[in-house]
Amino acid sequence: MRALLVVNPKATTTSERTRDVIVRALRSEADLFVEYTRRRGHAMALVRQAAADGFDAVVTLGGDGTVNEAVNGLMTSSPALADGPGSTADRLPVLAVVPGGSTNVFARAIGLPREWPEATSVLLEGLRVGRFRTIGLGRADDRYFTFCAGLGLDAAVIRQVERARLRGRKSTVGLYLRSMISEYFIGMDRRRPAIHLEQPGEPDEYELATVVIQNTAPWTFIGDRAINPNPNASFDLGLDVLALRQLHIPSTTRTLAQVTARAPEPHGRQLVRLHDLSEFTLSATQPQAFQLDGDYLGERTKVRFTAIRDALRVVH
Rank of each mutant, 00 (worst) to 15 (best):
I181A: 13
I308T: 06
A89N: 06
G100A: 08
E125W: 10
G152Y: 02
G298R: 08
I181G: 01
L61M: 12
Q160I: 00
T210P: 04
S28L: 07
A257N: 13
E16Y: 08
A11T: 01
G174A: 13
G168F: 02
F147H: 15
T13Q: 09
K170Q: 15
N230C: 15
T210Q: 05
L74N: 03
L137C: 09
L4M: 09
G62M: 03
G238M: 01
A119Q: 08
T37N: 02
T146F: 05
H316K: 15
H275P: 02
Y144C: 03
E35M: 13
V241D: 05
V173N: 08
P9M: 00
G187R: 06
P200V: 04
S278H: 11
L5E: 03
V105L: 02
A51Q: 05
L312D: 06
R39I: 11
L237Q: 14
R192C: 11
A80T: 09
L127M: 11
H267M: 08
E29P: 00
S182E: 12
V161N: 00
P93K: 00
V259E: 03
T60I: 12
N232D: 11
Q49C: 13
N68G: 13
M1Q: 09
Y296Q: 09
M75N: 11
L112C: 03
M1E: 04
P117Y: 12
R91M: 08
R190L: 08
A80Y: 05
T252P: 01
Y296I: 00
E35A: 15
G101S: 10
G130S: 02
V98R: 03
P287V: 00
A82G: 08
L153R: 01
R48T: 09
L256F: 14
P231K: 07
L237K: 15
K170G: 12
L127F: 14
I135L: 12
H248P: 00
L112I: 06
G223P: 10
L95K: 01
H316N: 14
G86Q: 13
L92K: 08
L46W: 04
T66S: 15
L175W: 01
D154S: 09
F221W: 04
W219V: 07
G294V: 02
R2M: 02
I249F: 14
F55A: 06
G187Q: 06
A3V: 03
P9S: 01
Q270W: 01
T253G: 12
R24G: 08
D31T: 14
A140M: 04
R190W: 07
D64I: 07
I222T: 10
S278K: 14
S77A: 08
L277S: 05
